[in-house]
Design a protein around this nucleic acid. Structure first.
Lengths: 165, 165
DNA sequence: CTAGGGTATTTTGGGGCCGAATCATCGCCG
DNA sequence: CGGCGATGATTCGGCCCCAAAATACCCTAG
């Protein structure tokens, strides 16, 4: 790999830290993971979510409830990838907007069951195809085979981090 | 690609939404980007940053000032990937911890120049090798060639999103 | 049949995050 | 030289984020 392929930020890093004994190969892989992830998230927030005044996390919450149906608050937090206290706040927001409801678990007085309202389901059904269209546009800079390979490499990474707990 | 290779969450999505006309190939690539990025960030916060009570963003701020040297507040925000108001808050935190300093730009009364203190430089010099060691451990689930390829694919994605503005 | 350990959720407290509005300063143009 | 649109940083208001503490409830051992 020639240095010409590096992004400007990466060349600056090499110029400043090149003399240190660091694993630059791993660094390029991981740092570009954060770089592209943040760029895509900002893109989606601006292009797809902003018109509805919807935050990234609320969107993911809607998506999770759409895919999984009614969930315990605990399972909801895990699926969205946030802590339980944060889930409480996000559910308060979604409930305030009329997109989700909470009810006591009839089988366990401590538990809460969360699900989409009709309005919430309608919202995510209309929003997600637009989100996916942007995903397709972004992924379109790669060939279909490259997209599959990217997904495969990332699954390996995700599994490796997850199992290192 | 067989469905056996999918993560459990992905299989659930396919089960619920498989009948819709969505670009699932793009979806697997992009959603795994978020999945692995969030997992690695949580891993780093817990393993490397928590002992110093250091947030992810403050860490990135330290890193940026280390690599780039003294920066204008505006350039700092861009390099960290946060808004200017957020940069004001992060710099307040870093300054309060004694790791960064602000001074008025002598050439422009509106501007502020930000740089590391001696303590800040010492902190990131000790912290970053530990961070990089975790990067190496995570990337180690891929072969060197795969790591290079992952970085290459992600650069293409990042460039594609960046130019879509 | 009740005390107390365990579990589910929420509150608290301190930061991070952004868009919109604000304040100071710059630099040009008349 | 004086006005004024552009620019840099900050404040404000509202949401997201977490760890630790508090609250509410479950369940079983004695």
């Amino acid at each position: 790999m020639s240095a010409d392929d590096l992004l400007p930020d990466e060349r600056k890093v090499l110029e400043q830290l090149g003399h240190l004994s660091l694993d630059f190969r791993a660094m390029w892989a991981i740092s570009n993971l954060f770089r592209s992830s943040a760029a895509i998230r900002r893109h989606m927030e601006a292009r797809v979510l902003a018109p509805d005044r919807l935050s990234w996390t609320s969107f993911v919450g809607l998506w999770v409830l759409w895919v999984w149906g009614e969930l315990g608050a605990n399972a909801f937090a895990d699926a969205v990838g946030i802590s339980r206290p944060t889930a409480t706040g996000v559910l308060r927001t979604l409930e305030g907007r009329g997109w989700a409801t909470r009810r006591k678990d009839p089988a366990d007085g401590r538990g809460v069951l969360v699900s989409l309202t009709r309005e919430g389901r309608t919202k995510i059904q209309h929003l997600f195809p637009r989100f996916n269209a942007e995903e397709a546009a972004i992924a379109g800079s790669l060939s279909p085979a490259e997209q599959d390979q990217l997904a495969r490499l990332l699954r390996t990474v995700a599994r490796s981090v997850g199992s290192a707990m």
